[in-house]
């Protein structure tokens, strides 16, 4: 697992989180710590799907799809 530099994540990128969720990047404040993302899937809690949250860098495990 390589460490992702969040500054490089463009809106539209799909990322996988440590809890198995998939999130699409909506916007990027370029602080290297957070991105704003929309849950596409959320095995831990289905009610998260479709919601937008701040996603923390250390919760991101992989880049699944670039835009």
């Amino acid at each position: 697992m390589s460490i992702v530099n969040l500054r490089h994540l463009q809106p539209g990128t799909r990322i996988g989180l440590s809890d198995g969720s998939t999130v699409e990047v909506v916007s990027n404040p370029l602080d290297g710590v957070w991105v704003f993302g929309r849950y596409l899937s959320a095995p831990r809690d289905a009610s998260l799907v479709g919601t937008e949250e701040m996603i923390f860098a250390q919760d991101i495990v992989e880049i699944r799809q670039t835009p």
Partner: peptide, 24 residues
Amino acid sequence: TPVFTCPYHGWSYAADGKLVGVPY
């Protein structure tokens, strides 16, 4: 910027001052 993020533990504040990002 949309948020002010602290580099130490990652806390993040919106431009209205609200604490919007707390890791874990």
